[in-house]
């Protein structure tokens, strides 16, 4: 249920950037969403639609790129992609640290600069 507030924050990030591009129109926003970010793409899209009815985002497209969960073994330092629980390293250790996959990033945006 917190997709709405995350999307508000994401648009805030874009707003802050757009101050430098006076009057430009946003074509596309690319979000990178970790698989452990507790975010449902459908709910993010819904929030995006609801929050971009007008303004510079009116015709903008939202692209969501899912990022894998990356784990690091505390025993052998191997970095690997997470599967199902329980998380175990190939060395047998279950002392695992999450090093990626919980984040939500505005990766890039595509804009039309005004004349």
């Amino acid at each position: 249920m917190h997709e709405m507030s995350l999307m508000e924050n994401a648009l805030q990030v874009v707003d802050d950037l757009m101050v430098n591009y006076n009057g430009a129109k946003v074509n596309e926003i690319v979000l990178k969403v970790g698989r452990l970010a507790n975010c449902i793409p459908g709910a993010l899209e819904f929030a995006f639609e609801a929050l971009t009815r007008e303004g510079p985002y009116k015709d903008a497209k939202l692209v969501i790129e899912k990022e894998p969960v990356l784990l690091k073994c505390a025993e052998c330092s191997q970095v690997f992609e997470a599967g199902e629980f329980p998380w175990t390293c190939t060395c047998g250790s279950n002392a695992i640290e999450i090093i990626g996959g919980t984040e939500v990033y505005v990766a890039n945006i595509d804009i039309d600069e005004s004349e």
Binding site: V13, V106, I109, I111, E113
Partner: peptide
């Protein structure tokens, strides 16, 4: 024009 942003959406909370 494409602009790279790479900004954490959760940074405000952090």
């Amino acid at each position: 024009m494409k602009i790279d942003v790479m900004q954490d959406v959760k940074a405000v909370n952090a």
